[in-house]
């Protein structure tokens, strides 16, 4: 019953997503593209933190790595932008896997601190390699034109392009998490000793999960560079990493759809807060945050699941 509700919800969401460019302004559409980009980043972080139980306060660093990979490849070598996204994903996969190895020695808050250090360091590292990164000025790109002589604005094209990447990555993540690998990933979070006793190579799985997580976030960063057509080091500050973690928790830990809800939250709620009070938008945002966590302790996805389950029960009761 809830499975059918989920399938219906998914179909509806896809229909809305496909129709969106015809009903909203170019600026709004750009914001929704950003939601798609964030959703990919949040899904990556959620695989690591929600499913595998490794807390990262530094995923902004992988987002930056992906963004700069794309920007540098386009700016210096004119590499076609779809290829740069793949390159960013692969590079972040390797970087995440390598970071995941020393991270094996760190649990919980200690891992959070180590990743936090990564987030702290990244803007300055980017400024340091000025020749490649353009220093504080960053790199300006141009928005790609739609291919195949499509009659669409660049913003419309980038929206659909991002949506396509998002759908592919969400399907892959769902497959990964639904089967043998996903069970092992969650088993490690729930009880690492028992997981080991069942034959799960916990060290390898944790490092690989870190790699996959970083790859998703890196692809999101690469997309953001293309969508915004600009990268600069100060956009990838500590606050970005914390925003990602906020999005994951608000959307719903260990939930795939939660990544979408979390992305909507981190994209739009700061704007609403701004609309409500120009003087103290972050205070308003803070109230929103606390309110959400109070009303939906398992995130938006968790709350929806509960509503669907209740409706299903009522449905069966009514028929009985």
């Amino acid at each position: 019953m809830t499975a059918r509700a989920g399938a219906l919800g998914l179909a509806a969401a896809l229909a809305v997503a496909l129709a969106l460019p015809f009903v909203v302004s170019n600026f709004r559409l750009f914001q929704f593209t950003q939601v798609g980009v964030y959703a990919i980043a949040l899904l990556g972080l959620n695989v690591l933190t929600g499913y595998n139980g490794q807390i990262s306060l530094g995923h902004g660093a992988f987002y930056a790595l992906g963004a700069y990979t794309t920007a540098i490849l386009i700016d210096h070598w004119n590499v076609p932008y779809p290829l740069t996204i793949i390159a960013a994903g692969v590079l972040c996969l390797v970087a995440g896997f390598l970071f995941g190895i020393p991270a094996l020695r760190l649990e919980g808050l200690y891992l959070a601190l180590a990743t936090f250090a990564l987030a702290l360091a990244i803007p300055q590292i980017l400024k340091y390699f000025e020749h490649w990164t353009g220093g504080s000025q960053g790199i300006v790109l141009s928005k790609p034109a739609p291919p195949w002589g499509m009659k669409a604005s660049p913003d419309q094209w980038l929206y659909y392009f991002t949506l396509a990447v998002l759908v592919i990555l969400f399907v892959l993540a769902r497959n990964l998490l639904a089967g043998r690998t996903g069970r092992a990933i969650v088993a490690i979070r729930d009880n690492p000793i028992a997981a080991q006793a069942m034959g799960v190579n916990t060290a390898l799985y944790k490092s690989l999960t870190f790699g996959v997580s970083a790859a998703y976030t890196g692809v999101a960063g690469a997309l953001s560079a293309i969508v915004i057509a600009f990268v600069a080091p100060d956009a990838f500050n500590v606050f970005l990493s914390i925003t990602f973690l906020t999005g994951v928790v608000i959307g719903g830990l260990a939930s795939i759809s939660g990544a979408i809800f979390g992305a909507l939250f981190i994209q739009f709620v700061p704007n609403w807060a701004q609309d409500i009070s120009k003087a103290a938008p972050w205070a308003i945002y803070g109230v929103f945050l606390i309110g959400f966590m109070y009303v939906m302790p398992f995130g938006i996805a968790g709350a929806l699941r509960r509503v669907a389950a209740r409706a299903a029960r009522r449905g069966t009761a009514a028929r009985a």
């Binding site: 892959l172 043998r180 690998t181 069942m198 034959g199 799960v200 996959v212």
Partner: peptide, 13 residues
């Protein structure tokens, strides 16, 4: 788990 072989890539696909 100990009796099965599929990995990250084959599961994702």
């Amino acid at each position: 788990h100990a009796r099965t072989r599929s990995d990250f890539l084959s599961n994702a696909l």
